[in-house]
Amino acid sequence: MFKNRLRKAVLPLSLKEPEHKIMGMAKILAHFGTKKVSLVHIKSRTNRRSFSVQERLQTYAQKIQEMGYETEIKVNYGQNILHEISKISTEVKAEFLCIIWKAKGIFKRTLIGSKTIEAIRHTNLPIFIYKHRIALINKDSSIDSILYATDFKITDSIVIPYLNNKDITASKLILLHVGDRAPDPDTENQRLNSVYANLERLNLECLNCFKEVETIQVIGTPKRKIVRQARKNNTDLILIGKFDALNTLEQIMGSTAEAIAFKSSCSVFILPGLKHT
């Protein structure tokens, strides 16, 4: 699935990632129609482990090649990891960025930050955040169901072309809308009618690519409800669009996309929305 738009992936590795996670992720990439994976490692000038780095990257590249991908290795020097990854992504004309999720406690996250969050905030490429799940690996790394959380805004125009692809192998798509209840019953009825109409429109747009499309609308806070619905429906992948205009509170507390990336137990695909002008 998504093969026309997600052929070239950049996979940054700190080389602290366990091998089974890297391989698990590589298996998943097949479902996106990915053909080429660039393994990227950013070193600081003081790092003297250059030989072992090359060797390990070679080993991973070989194993990924055996899965049927074309690979290349890129090692850059620099202090600003995100900047270097971005430079390489442009250089190799990558179409998306893959990140292997590393759980960090709230204190670590607050005190020393998170590279994943920085990437979500600053990268304009689609980002696939891989969360390793034993159950998923056991069922041959397949993605059976995808949950797309929509707000019917500009992100739809970005996300739907990714979903609307005949090569999609996932059997079920859940279209989820999370919104606030209107302040009075009449406006709420109007809101619900509009939500159902929009969900139906999206349903029709995606019907050809999935065996089953389910539409759900719930009331509440998106960051909580999306994760809860994904868990409830045993979803394999959450797909969300990212809106770039963050208000002051979101800049401090983090956006909905960032919160979902943290809270979700399944993998998350974040597609960048249009830049807010």
Binding site: R181, A182, P183, D184, P185, T187, I219
Partner: peptide
């Protein structure tokens, strides 16, 4: 606000529509 702007009956319970719904 809830009775004059949102046309709900002027009751305290009306003010809870955004939280409690029906």
């Amino acid at each position: 606000y809830f009775s004059f702007r949102r046309d709900m009956p002027p009751l305290i319970s009306s003010c809870f529509y955004p939280l409690l719904g029906e």
